[in-house]
């Protein structure tokens, strides 16, 4: 009976109950059921709301490289020695610009990474690997949450057990 109720609760949370069944179930919800639904909702948000860096979609390297190359191209149609020399100087300047630009891009990327994933080598990390987990009379869930004080240094593990009714 307990397992059937748990299954119905899960189906209710997933929106799989028919409207009549849903209404009937909602009328019979206990305080414990509401707590479990709240926990399910939070866990769902935790899984679904993983952060992705917006910078992954920004091609800084490509944009700066394109501009640097455009600035280093010699004028079209130039054939004289002076033009060739100028082209050489322009190419050299372009290489310096390109090198400088590349350095700036790398520095910016490194700064962005450090900002998003700061390293705190002097504080303990909460790395935890669950090697075995057995429960009786309960359901266990292993939850990994971001190490909020030190994002980027790994996750913190929570072994969540929910006792059977």
């Amino acid at each position: 009976m307990g397992n059937q109720h748990d299954e119905t609760l899960q189906r209710y949370f997933d929106g799989e109950l028919a409207p009549e069944e849903r209404a009937r179930f909602e009328a019979e919800l206990t305080a414990d059921d509401r707590e479990r639904l709240a926990a399910l909702d939070e866990m769902h948000a935790l899984v679904a709301g993983a952060l992705e860096g917006a910078a992954a979609d920004v091609d800084l390297w490509g944009a700066i490289e394109g501009q640097v190359r455009a600035a280093s191209l010699p004028a079209p149609g130039a054939t004289s020695i002076k033009s060739a020399a100028r082209r050489g100087r322009d190419r050299a300047r372009g290489r310096r610009l390109f090198g400088t630009g590349a350095g700036l891009v790398l520095a910016a990327a490194a700064t962005l990474l450090l900002f998003m994933y700061p390293r705190h080598p002097n504080h303990p990390t909460n790395g935890c690997d669950i090697e075995s987990l057995e429960v009786a009379g309960a359901v266990a869930t292993v939850i990994q949450v971001a190490d909020e004080p030190h994002p980027g240094d790994g996750d913190t593990t929570i072994i969540w057990t929910e006792e059977d009714k």
Partner: peptide, 18 residues
């Protein structure tokens, strides 16, 4: 009711709840 083996970083924290 619970029997778990885990490897934890020294000084790190692991939580058991429920």
């Amino acid at each position: 009711v619970l029997d778990t083996t885990f490897v934890l970083d020294e000084g790190g924290v692991v939580l058991q709840a429920g």
